[in-house]
């Protein structure tokens, strides 16, 4: 194959110029997802009120929607009303020219919330029943039980899967090119425009993603080890 490693470097530089876009899109939506997804999971697990039924219907539906559709939908859902309003209000006119990254953030946050709520639901069920019973027998209220006993343990179980989630977000963020946002992958491709060196561009972007994801993986591993002190595990070894 005509492969020229010297072309990886310019592609790498091009890719790194849009690194902040990928990082912002993934990490901000992850945080939003965690903040909103945990209450959703708690509500669903404990059949709190009518909200848990509503969510029980809504989340499985939203889970099935591909990220690309979220991005496209929000693009038009946010911009169309603004376009209509801009004839009357100047602020709408300014808003509708906003940087598309905000649309990307909203779309990815929704997708992240759905994804993470499922992760937390799975983590909550892996905390053994005995824990809940022990809490109530000692007289803790439901909130105290959650905050002091259950959630910390659930986070230990959730950590590896949350790692998966954030890595999915990082890699999935490249879909935002459909509304014209430039991230690492697409920026690397621009360097191949003139000379068609696509393989080198893909390899450059793969290196960037790998470093980011491996770092996240490492951090996740450390957190898991720290939190798991004192929690007995099965599985041998």
């Amino acid at each position: 194959m005509t492969f020229d490693a010297s072309y990886i470097w310019p592609s790498l530089i091009a890719a790194l110029q849009c690194l902040h876009v990928t990082l912002i899109l993934s990490f901000v939506s992850f945080c939003v997802g965690l903040l909103l997804g945990t209450p959703v999971a708690v509500s669903r697990k404990f059949h709190a009120t009518w909200t848990s039924y509503a969510l029980g219907v809504l989340i499985p539906i939203l889970k099935g929607v591909p990220l690309v559709l979220y991005v496209l939908m929000f693009n038009f859902a946010i911009l169309k009303p603004l376009d209509a309003l801009s004839e009357y209000y100047a602020w709408a006119d300014g808003l509708r020219r906003m940087d598309k990254i905000y649309i990307g953030l909203v779309a990815m946050s929704v997708s992240a919330t759905v994804m993470i709520s499922e992760t937390m639901r799975s983590a909550l069920s892996s905390v053994s029943e005995g824990q809940y019973e022990a809490c109530f027998s000692v007289g803790l209220t439901k909130w105290q039980a959650l905050r002091r006993v259950v959630l910390p343990q659930a986070m230990v179980f959730a950590a590896p899967v949350l790692c998966n989630n954030i890595i999915s977000l990082i890699k999935g963020s490249s879909i935002v090119f459909v509304v014209g946002i430039m991230d690492v992958l697409n920026s690397a491709k621009t360097s191949a425009q003139i000379n068609y060196r696509f393989l080198e561009a893909y390899i450059a972007s793969a290196l960037v993603y790998w470093v980011i994801c491996a770092t996240v993986g490492r951090i996740g591993w450390f957190l898991e080890k720290r939190q798991a002190r004192g929690v007995a595990k099965a599985g041998g070894a």
């Binding site: 590896p160 595990k233 599985g235």
Partner: peptide
């Protein structure tokens, strides 16, 4: 690769008392 992590997390979540 992804399933390996899910399976690993699930196996590790079974309490030691079981084994």
């Amino acid at each position: 690769a992804f399933l390996a992590e899910i399976i690993r997390s699930a196996i590790l979540s079974v309490p030691a008392s079981q084994s």
